[in-house]
């Protein structure tokens, strides 16, 4: 394993290779690197919301009283600030994810490769459709059930 240290390390078989020391906060020095780390860290708010969903399902399963406690907690400043921050991060996650999708997905029709712009566009269309559908479901749930 490579281990950074204050001194170059030489390996057997790689006599001329040495590992340069890198500061821990190397990514904070350049905006492109910081943006990369921010993008990777969007996974934390994603996990945060997954945990909120688990707590919501738990509260629902325990009954109306537990659920009222849960929704009261959602109104606290702590919860609201966590949700605002997480919302900004998950939007950033969606945008960066869809924009990178053409790099991961290669679809061909016959010999022609579908252009990346089309793949990204389809992702945004799907995003819009699902968002509207879920918002509609929540707004009309009391009439539907």
């Amino acid at each position: 394993m490579f281990k950074s240290s204050r001194f170059p390390i030489y390996y057997k078989g790689h006599p001329r290779m040495f590992v340069k020391d890198k500061p821990i906060f190397w990514w904070a020095l350049k905006w492109v690197h910081a943006r990369f780390i921010i993008r990777e860290l969007t996974s934390v708010p994603v996990a945060f919301y997954a945990i909120i969903l688990i707590l919501q399902i738990r509260a629902l399963s325990l009954g109306p009283e537990a659920y009222a406690n849960f929704t009261n907690w959602l109104k606290t400043p702590l919860s609201l600030s966590l949700h605002v921050i997480s919302f900004l991060f998950v939007i950033y996650h969606s945008v960066t994810w869809f924009n990178l999708a053409p790099k991961a997905i290669v679809i061909r029709i016959g010999k022609n490769r579908i252009p990346g712009l089309v793949i990204t566009g389809l992702n945004y269309v799907a995003w819009a459709i699902f968002s509207v559908a879920i918002a509609w479901l929540f707004l009309n749930l009391d009439n539907l059930m």
Partner: peptide, 25 residues
């Protein structure tokens, strides 16, 4: 998560607690 979390988070975590839309019972 990219497709579904933003809308669910916005509705359940912000719009309903802030009273912008009414919570389903």
């Amino acid at each position: 998560s990219a497709l579904f979390i933003p809308v669910i988070l916005f509705i359940q975590g912000l719009a309903i607690p802030l009273g912008w839309i009414e919570s389903p019972n």
